[in-house]
């Protein structure tokens, strides 16, 4: 991290950061969006300053995931403030709050470690609203004397929030999940189970060599290779197509959303690559929706509105269905190897 300078405070020097991001920050963001080094993209916890912070400047609290930190500072143009970075082990505010690392105890200890009460004359902190899952405002007040003001959900609303005398509108308080929010998460979805995908593709490729004469590498290169690509298509249906068309799918269960996109893609695959083998044909009408359904169900964790109780309920129905349909599909596909 490059600092713009330092500011002197009674407990010591505090590093100043800028709101302008550099190319390295954008490249770093691109990298973690594709899930490379995502668990180790951090800034050092502690106190920072922005602009020309003084004794009456507000204190913004955030997580030490660098993507969160950068997202906050790029929205602070023209605002003099302090930034208190909690040690969330490099996890973003909302997820860390769920785990409790962005929480009351960590906030109270960072207030005391940084000597914040000697740096600012006031006694309030601006905490992102999604931090409320881990931060109990009344406990922070009791333990540190600082009043927690929960700010907007999105950092981009901070300037307006400050101009509104720290009042957030209903829109600022509400989590969204629109097309842009979903699209930005797709790369990480693709990467999530990528190693399993490669393993399954390799297994399908090798199984593709089976035939009634025993085993043939030509058959693997022909049918096996095509089959492993169909599995990849099913996987991508679940983690790209389902998220994109998400609200258009007229069901609420994620596993059903994935089954629908999977079925439609299975139809497209059949039209583009028709097979004369009935077993092979039926196999893909089972396998593609089953794989897509399972992968789409994992999008619950990425979404911003599913409850644990709801996901548990859906999984109780979905997992047995997905396993039986995928097994039936696989069996038919193997049978097809021997009668083609």
């Amino acid at each position: 991290m490059n600092f713009a300078g330092q500011v002197s405070t009674p407990p010591g020097e505090v590093n100043l950061v800028t709101s302008g991001l550099r190319i390295a920050d954008y490249l770093g963001a691109l990298k973690v969006r594709w899930a490379f080094g995502r668990n180790n993209y951090r800034v050092a916890p502690g106190l920072y300053g922005h602009g020309s912070p003084g004794r009456n400047s507000p204190v913004m609290v955030t997580a030490n995931y660098k993507l969160s930190f950068d997202h906050l500072r790029k929205n602070l143009s023209g605002i003099d403030c302090w930034i208190l970075v909690l040690d969330t082990k490099g996890i973003n505010v909302w997820c860390a709050a769920g785990k409790g690392t962005f929480g009351t105890n960590e906030l109270v200890s960072k207030i005391s470690e940084t000597g914040l009460s000697d740096i600012v004359a006031h006694r309030y902190l601006l905490v992102p609203q999604l931090g409320a899952t881990g931060v109990a405002a009344h406990e922070v007040k009791k333990q540190s004397g600082f009043r927690v003001i929960f700010g907007p959900v999105r950092a981009s609303d901070i300037p307006e929030f400050i101009n509104n005398q720290y009042k957030a509108t209903t829109a600022m308080r509400t989590v969204r999940f629109n097309l842009k929010d979903r699209m930005i998460l797709i790369p990480a979805e693709i990467m999530e189970h990528f190693s399993y995908l490669v393993f399954v593709m390799a297994a399908i490729f090798l199984l593709g060599g089976l035939n009634r004469h025993g085993y043939s590498l030509d058959a693997a290169l022909d049918g096996g290779l095509a089959a492993s690509f169909k599995i990849a298509i099913a996987y991508l249906t679940g983690c790209v197509i389902t998220p994109v068309v998400f609200p258009l799918l007229p069901v609420r269960h994620f596993f059903l959303k994935g089954a629908i996109t999977g079925f439609l893609i299975a139809v497209a695959v059949f039209i583009l690559y028709p097979s004369k083998n009935i077993f092979e044909t039926i196999a893909w009408f089972l396998l593609v929706p089953a794989v897509s359904s399972f992968i789409s169900m994992n999008f619950t964790g990425t979404s911003t509105f599913t409850s644990l109780s709801g996901v548990l309920k859906e999984m109780k129905t979905a997992i047995p269905l997905q396993i039986s349909i995928a097994s039936a599909g696989l069996l038919l596909w193997i049978i097809a190897r021997f009668i083609s």
Binding site: G98, A132, V135, F254, N298, G301, T304, F305, V311, E314
Partner: peptide, 25 residues
């Protein structure tokens, strides 16, 4: 979505929720 923010921030204990991750994985 059972995030638990309301229950945690209710000083008078008027809200309970079994919070957790709504995530299949």
């Amino acid at each position: 979505m059972e995030c638990g923010a309301c229950a945690l921030n209710c000083a008078s204990g008027a809200i309970t929720v079994k919070s957790g991750v709504g995530c299949a994985a």
